[in-house]
Nucleic acid binder design. Structure first.
Lengths: 139, 139
DNA sequence: CCTCCAGTTGCAAATTATTTGCATCTACAC
DNA sequence: GTGTAGATGCAAATAATTTGCAACTGGAGG
């Protein structure tokens, strides 16, 4: 996937700060909060600002470069989106690592939706727990 | 389900404020944010305080009287829990009405969990959209 | 290359959401 | 009734997110 091209197509500029955010999330291989992202990104670009983080989370979501999820306790997490296709995640509560899988439970709901006349526009399916490594650490 | 009994068993007092919160959520038949709950509850008990709301959301969750969910845009919503069994929800983005169903997608993940060695401790599955009535309103 | 300007950033301040300390109050076991 | 652990109200502290605005800059078009 050509990042520069997708940005250009949406009329969005690829600024230094945006590169830093993308690289930070991609290299982290884990989901993090906006606050953590700020800290991590600050290492690479010290003067980066919080409002830039928040504004760009929206931008990167709209470009499809990041996924938004929650950590199971109400905090919102963001992770680099490494899959083109629709997917969901297992999220490790210890290290933040995300494992994506392509099963989507929405298809199983056809009957419920038909019966209730509910029209879905979005959904969320996340599993919280401990990855293989962190699970060991906790024994 | 006997509310007074479940409270007593947990050593939790059934105060007037807690009754107001429970009644507010039960009678609303919809999911709402802490802020909305404050407004609604204030009608019935004008001097109720925000800290009481927040503290009791935790209490009522632990007693199993309310469900927590999100509205799809990051806001946390709470609804009266009308089912004993584990379940998930369809949440109307217009009126907040929730429709619960008992299908749980976690069982479909056995293979993914086995393959990855991930140990789940919690999960979330919510569907956002428009209920039968609100869907009409939008045509 | 250079120029231009709409899109973007930094900063500071405003909002909004949530939590906490503490004195006072009250549900309820006895 | 009475005593007391648990709850509440209030105000103030935190934390999280958004916004206004002047200054800056990526990149399209010369």
């Amino acid at each position: 996937m050509d990042i520069e091209k997708s940005f250009r197509e949406k009329g969005v500029r690829l600024t230094h700060q945006r590169r830093v955010l993308i690289d930070t999330l991609r290299d982290a291989h884990r989901a993090m909060t906006a606050q953590e992202l700020y800290k991590e990104a600050s290492m690479a670009w010290p003067h980066i600002n919080f409002s830039t983080i928040y504004r760009n989370i929206e931008t990167l979501k709209s470009v499809g470069l990041i996924c938004e999820m929650t950590d199971g306790t109400g905090n919102t997490l963001f992770a680099y989106r490494d899959e083109e296709e629709h997917h969901h995640h297992l999220v490790c509560k210890n290290c933040g690592k995300t494992i994506s899988f392509d099963f989507c439970p929405l298809i199983e709901l056809k009957q419920v939706l038909d019966e209730t006349g509910f029209m879905p526009t979005g959904h969320r399916f996340e599993v919280y727990g401990y990855c293989k490594e962190c699970r060991k650490d906790r024994l």
